[in-house]
Design a protein around this nucleic acid. Structure first.
Lengths: 357, 357
DNA sequence: GCCCGATGTGGGAACGTTCCCAACCTGCTC
DNA sequence: GAGCAGGTTGGGAACGTTCCCACATCGGGC
């Protein structure tokens, strides 16, 4: 087995090979295959036949060296194992493939240092653009550097203030407000919001990130509308990273004046709430109404089925891809901020509030 | 005034630039940076200083053209949204990054045609190797073609008979046998296995694939050991694709002589079983014991918490990466078949069998 | 008859790197 | 003092493609 691929029996055919076979020059063969410039019909046909015969596959590396385009996008997400990002990643790969792009995947685990490293490596690989769900709202110099350095960046799920990059997010404020309004509409007054900390692991342990902030703001807005001013009374965010949401929820539900309804900002938190409720022998929805963000598999299989704010996860990824490709191919238009609507899916986890015994 | 015609404001520095700055030739600069051949200490230091000053980043594309290595691996998985593959993908990216490789991700949705297309595209991108969870046990010509064509392939999670490729799988037979033994040990005799169809969307709608087959075999083996010969009585596999596991389970649990225990081959099936049980007012574990494959987030949050056969999902991905890199860098050793152990996690969803009223 | 544009064609350069090889110094031995 | 080994250096080629440009041919309009 020779390691030299020049003399190998199955050396992949190149343009010179095809040109020789077709009896034309490299230039003509290249034009015929890439379908540009002007080539006579006969020459084009001969080249195509030769390429077919030799099983010619263009070398994308060489092509990329000339054109400066790799048709590859980098996706830098926080955690693929999180169902939300799994769905987003699915949307990204599907949309990219449909548009003729491939995806280089990187996981940051919410670590800004890992994110910087990933962005660096992906840029070294000459990706045409980057989709990033930024781990930090402050440590973003590498993102602007990439963007101004010719590698467009689209922000996914999370917005960074004062950063002039395209972004694709969900209407977190509106979705939270709507969900809390529904709880208010059936008579709840003591409504809790339970959340883990946000998307920032290092800078500030309690920084809720743009997503968490927007959801809290929507929650507060709905309460204010209803004349409830003390919005902080039932607001619980994980004080430190890795905190067990079940403990957080237990603490809340076991208080002297417990909430009659809980709004969970993600599915993991919701599991904690349900777990705590069972432990305290609280029935859902009779004793406790529950709404959560994210329509996971178990939310529609558990009894009672959980009412949720469904995010268009795949669409989120797809829109990010489209925005990025537009930026890659096209021009310098002002940054666009796309906000996708959420959908409230009503199930059986919400009941009218009732007097406590 | 630069001599280069493309004097953009931020043209990335190249080796000639560094060499000029350091007052040496391209060759010396290249040797100093790549740390091979022989370079005088002074020259090496001058080159390094120049590279630092100019912010030199080697062009991986050009490097790959020469070396024939891209330090990129292709991962072709069935469905990233499936928690199992999400975990596997996580393991793959982590292990790859640690070894200095990047991951090009492709989703097949269990479609052999999509898998063929993905393999073709990734090979065109000159990945150094491929990790594939094959959608079909018969349509595998593209995999052997890739392997013999110099692009090593490692099979993930699923084995293909008579295919001499490295594989990394889980001990499905042993895991299933162990789980069923545990049910037998506490007195159950009417034990059901509920499964969706396997990993093949086109060839044969009821082909359970290697994974499913092994699990069924383990189930049968355990029953035989216990002297139960009619192993088919409580074996339920989804007859066609997309079948609702809850319906399948309902059908089973509502029969005249229903099982007292159910073994679900994946977490989605388990949700269906739990859903059906609630619908029929069967309590878990008093009326029905449940064990499932895959330790998902909800399995440890739901009440009762579900006993599971946990697969080492991340380890599975990591091992595949290591096997592939060994194949890429090293030599032609005979194909290795790695089988990883599973772990039974005992929770509260299994109770001793009792007489039916 | 001559210019001109349109059309087809081929040669050369370029992209940025690695690798091979010849040439050059040293300093040492015989 | 010639030869030789070992370290150091630079020039050239190569990887496979695209792109620029020069050239050749041909018909038509003046």
């Amino acid at each position: 087995m020779t390691t030299n691929r020049r003399s190998g029996p199955h050396r992949p055919a190149t343009i010179p090979d095809v040109a020789r076979e077709a009896g034309v020059s490299r230039s003509t063969a290249s034009r015929a295959l890439a379908d540009y410039g002007s080539v006579s019909p006969e020459a084009r046909e001969r080249v195509r036949a030769a390429a077919r015969k030799l099983g010619y596959r263009p070398n994308q590396l060489a092509r990329s060296m000339i054109t400066g385009r790799t048709h590859t996008l980098g996706a830098v997400v926080a955690d693929i194992q999180n169902p939300f990002f799994a769905g987003v990643t699915r949307g990204i790969t599907d949309a990219a493939r449909a548009a003729g792009y491939q995806i280089l995947l990187a996981n940051t685990d919410e670590d800004p240092a890992a994110e910087r490293a990933a962005v660096k490596t992906l840029r070294d690989r000459h990706v045409d653009g980057l989709i990033v769900s930024p781990a930090s709202t402050t440590d973003t110099a590498h993102l602007t550097a990439a963007h101004t350095g010719g590698c467009p960046v689209v922000l996914l799920d999370r917005r960074v203030p004062h950063l002039d990059l395209d972004s694709v997010t969900v209407d977190n404020h509106g979705a939270a407000q709507d969900a809390v309004r529904r709880l208010l509409a059936v008579g709840h007054r003591r409504i809790a919001l339970v959340s883990l900390v946000g998307n920032d692991a290092t800078d500030d342990p309690v920084d809720p990130g743009s997503t968490g902030l927007a959801r809290m703001a929507g929650y507060r807005a709905a309460l204010r509308e209803a004349g409830i001013d003390d919005a902080a009374a039932y607001l619980r965010t994980g004080a430190f990273h890795g905190q067990d949401p079940a403990l957080l929820a237990r603490d809340l539900l076991d208080s002297p004046e417990p909430p009659t309804a809980v709004f969970a900002t993600d599915s993991l938190v919701a599991l904690g709430v349900l777990s705590a409720a069972r432990e305290l022998n609280l029935r859902v929805p009779e004793d406790l109404s529950v709404i959560t963000f994210d329509d996971t598999d178990w939310a529609r299989a558990v009894r009672p089925r959980i009412s949720v704010v469904a995010q268009p996860v795949q669409e989120l990824g797809a829109q990010a891809v489209h925005a990025l490709i537009a930026r890659v191919q096209g021009g310098a238009h002002p940054p666009e901020h796309t906000t996708l609507p959420t959908e409230f899916i009503e199930r059986e986890s919400v009941a009218p509030a009732r007097k406590r015994p």
